[in-house]
């Protein structure tokens, strides 16, 4: 009997591939920072409204991730770090990613507006626009300052969380924005230092590609020097306190030590130990942000017991 061999069946996406389209790891950071912004605001929100708010902020972030994946398909296909994503791997068609991104953006913004307030919804819409259009379509391929300005997109979630509760902006929510905004460059540039040829292969004008690694090392140090005093100053806003101050002093001391070590190294040294310091700094930067927001949350949680805040 002759075997029948069916070939050319297109790859068919499972549900998990659509979830991956929404960049769940980025979403988890968005959920955490937005939740902190919402919980530390001086206005109590009904738990169901808070849950809905966070859910749709996360969905909006996921939608912008899908739009980014649609637009960056050509770049993602080249880079090792991203070539297994659903669109470049061919599991999800680019048009489908665009459709999902646009539909989910609309749902997230409208639902956030209905559940909470128009200001929060407007801020979410602006964040999606900023990430998908300003960062992905414009800055990413044109300037080595792409992640500096584009970092604003990742910095908005705690502001949206705060806006869900209060309906506005304050020094505290601006501080949380500034913290993530200033944290983004050293975080990404330390990653770029050990990603080797990924960005140059893809033609993305990352600082390592356009200005070289020594300049990037100097930039990591410079932005860390700017970030540290800002993070410490947050201790003296309405959401800071002694616990936050102790946490931020320790973390920023560590940050500066790491940044100086990166700055003092050259490529031969980094190659010799396979970018151990750079990788360590990158990992630490994730804890850095998580612990800062954790300390802000702890200050708010301790307030009812007379312990949090000044």
């Amino acid at each position: 009997m002759t075997d029948i061999r069916i070939t050319g069946i297109p790859k068919e996406a499972g549900f998990g591939d659509y979830v991956a389209l929404l960049k769940p790891r980025v979403m988890s950071l968005v959920v955490f920072t937005a939740l902190v912004g919402l919980l530390v605001a001086p206005v109590t929100v009904h738990p169901m409204i808070a849950l809905t708010g966070i859910l749709f902020i996360a969905l909006g972030a996921g939608a912008s991730g899908a739009l980014n994946m649609w637009w960056d398909e050509d770049i993602d296909r080249v880079m090792k770090r991203t070539r297994n994503r659903p669109v470049p791997s061919g599991t999800v068609a680019p048009g489908e990613a665009l459709g999902i991104g646009l539909a989910l953006s609309g749902i997230a913004v409208v639902m956030l507006g209905l559940a909470t307030n128009l200001f929060a919804a407007g801020l979410l819409a602006f964040t999606i626009f900023f990430y998908a259009v300003v960062y992905s379509m414009w800055l990413k391929r044109t300037t080595p300052q792409n992640i500096v300005i584009g970092g604003a997109a990742g910095a908005f979630p705690p502001m949206i969380g705060w806006a869900v509760a209060t309906g506005g902006v304050s020094v505290e929510s601006l501080f949380m924005f500034a913290l993530i905004f200033m944290w983004t460059p050293p975080h990404f540039w330390s990653l770029a230092l050990f990603m080797k040829s990924d960005y140059s292969d893809a033609g993305v004008p990352m600082l390592t590609v356009t200005h070289g690694r020594p300049v990037t090392r100097t930039h990591v140090l410079a932005y860390s020097l700017l970030l540290a005093p800002l993070a410490v100053a947050g201790a003296f806003t309405g959401i800071g306190g002694p616990l936050y101050l102790a946490t931020t002093l320790a973390l920023n001391g560590w940050l500066l030590v790491g940044a100086v070590r990166i700055w003092r190294r050259d490529e031969a040294e980094a190659e010799a130990d396979r970018y151990r310091v750079e990788k360590g700094f990158f990992r630490f930067s994730l804890y850095y942000l998580f612990l800062h927001f954790g300390a802000i949350l702890a200050e708010a949680a301790l307030k009812p017991y007379g312990l949090g805040g000044w």
Partner: peptide, 8 residues
Amino acid sequence: VVFGLTVA
């Protein structure tokens, strides 16, 4: 979610 939101 929509039902819970409505109740809230």
